[in-house]
Computed example of a mutant assay.
Amino acid sequence: MTVIVSVFLIASFGLWIAQRVKSYSASLSCGILVLIWLMLTCIVGLRSWNVGRDSLMYARQFEALGTRSLGIRDYLAPGYTLVSLALRVIGLDEYQYLFIVMAGLTFGFLLFAVWRLSKMPAVTLFILLSFGNLLESVNQYRQFLALSIVLFSFIFFIENKVIIYYLLIILACCFHPSALICLLIPIVLHWHFSDLTMIVVSISSVILFSVLTPLIHKAMNILPYVQNYVGSQFDSKISLENVAVFTFRLLVFIGVLYCFHKTKSDNKDKKEVGIFFYGIFFQALALVLPVLARLPFYGVQISSVLIPSCMGNKEIDTEKETRFIPLWCDVLIILVFALYLVADCYSKRFMWTDYSFFWQQTDVLSAIRRWTPQ
């Protein structure tokens, strides 16, 4: 899906320009951000149903949706269901309207969060792209909207506006129930952990979850809808790919800890590191139970904000002298994530399907309507 990757790279470059011109003209910078939002919304939102592995399923479900046909999946995501029903009530009953509304909401929350949280918004968006989750915006777009809302909510959590944070998490849950795990972040971060403790807990969690796997499976079997995933194709064993993902994100976490240990970090940085630790903890769970692979990124995505904070001319205090992180380290970081992006794209073959707009699939869309039960 070269078109999707390219449009995100262009968006990253656009964020770099917007940040550069902000000091000269705030209105011009704002205009560039709006153009970036429009570009992402149109390219992702106006795609056809065959772009993304799950898009056909979403298209068929939307065009067959009715108040009498609602199932447990619809009730578990009331926000998504209400958006879908509202579009159908006003006569916008073709799938491309749902796609573009979801894209508009997603990139609105995402871009605002990236712009407010990151010291280098362009690098943050590139890291999110490298992790592969931006590419999921054309596939698992319900959860991607939830992820974007959660990232947006971190603005208020860091500013100690916990009530607003909780309200936004509830909103995210209305689009994907997995966002519920973020309700525990303020409770967990109430305790202060040393760097060594966080590393030890992150690694030992793999052993803990391995032992608890049978109990977790039993708990999942009790939960409605979640039980459908137990024993499915997603409920697989530990794979080399899962180990690689966990190892890479753990190394990034350790690198961030090292950077902030050597530099003077404020309370904002400490909260973001705590959120990252929370994500790594669930990354250990996803390593043992790949069926829960969607859970870690709610916390892990904050790394895209932390890494740019480690880049640039950051002073490092040593016993002998104060020096600066050299430019080649920044280049190396970008190169590492670029290689990670390439590896991720090759491991998820569906990302390389041909891109097409919805109007290029008119005949097939008619067939979808005939196949869908009324």
Rank of each mutant, 00 (worst) to 15 (best):
V83Y: 11
L40A: 00
D269E: 15
F126W: 04
V243I: 15
F152R: 00
Q140L: 11
Y165T: 07
I302H: 02
R349C: 00
K271M: 13
G31Y: 00
F152V: 03
Y75D: 03
L183H: 06
L292C: 12
T372C: 11
I127R: 06
F282S: 05
T124P: 05
I43W: 07
A59S: 11
R60H: 02
V200L: 13
K314V: 13
S29F: 06
Y75G: 03
V5D: 03
A11K: 07
P290K: 09
F99C: 04
A77K: 03
M351E: 08
D54Y: 06
K268H: 14
Q61S: 11
V34C: 08
F253M: 09
L285E: 07
P121F: 00
T372W: 02
L250R: 10
Q360H: 15
G79S: 00
L257Y: 02
T197G: 05
M220H: 06
D235Q: 08
R53H: 11
L134Y: 04
V21G: 12
V44R: 10
L215M: 11
D269L: 12
V211W: 00
V89P: 02
P121K: 05
S356Q: 10
L167F: 15
K271P: 06
Q19T: 12
T318A: 07
R68H: 14
P326T: 04
Q96P: 08
L180F: 13
W371T: 15
I32P: 05
V7P: 01
K268F: 15
D74V: 04
I275G: 03
A59R: 02
Y225N: 14
F282L: 01
V252S: 07
L92M: 12
I100D: 02
F62W: 05
D54I: 12
S210D: 01
Y166P: 12
G279F: 01
A113T: 05
L105E: 02
L292T: 08
E136F: 14
Y97K: 01
F248I: 12
A18Y: 13
S303I: 05
L212R: 06
W16D: 04
E315P: 08
Y141H: 07
F297C: 00
Y95P: 04
V273W: 14
A179L: 10
V7D: 01
G71T: 14
Y258K: 10
M57N: 14
V245S: 02
I169G: 05
S153W: 07
M351R: 12
F109C: 10
W371S: 15
L105I: 05
C173K: 07
N267E: 15
A59D: 04
Q233T: 05
G132W: 01
P177Y: 04
I17E: 09
L341N: 06
I43Y: 07
V331F: 14
F99V: 01
G14Y: 06
F276D: 04
D363N: 13
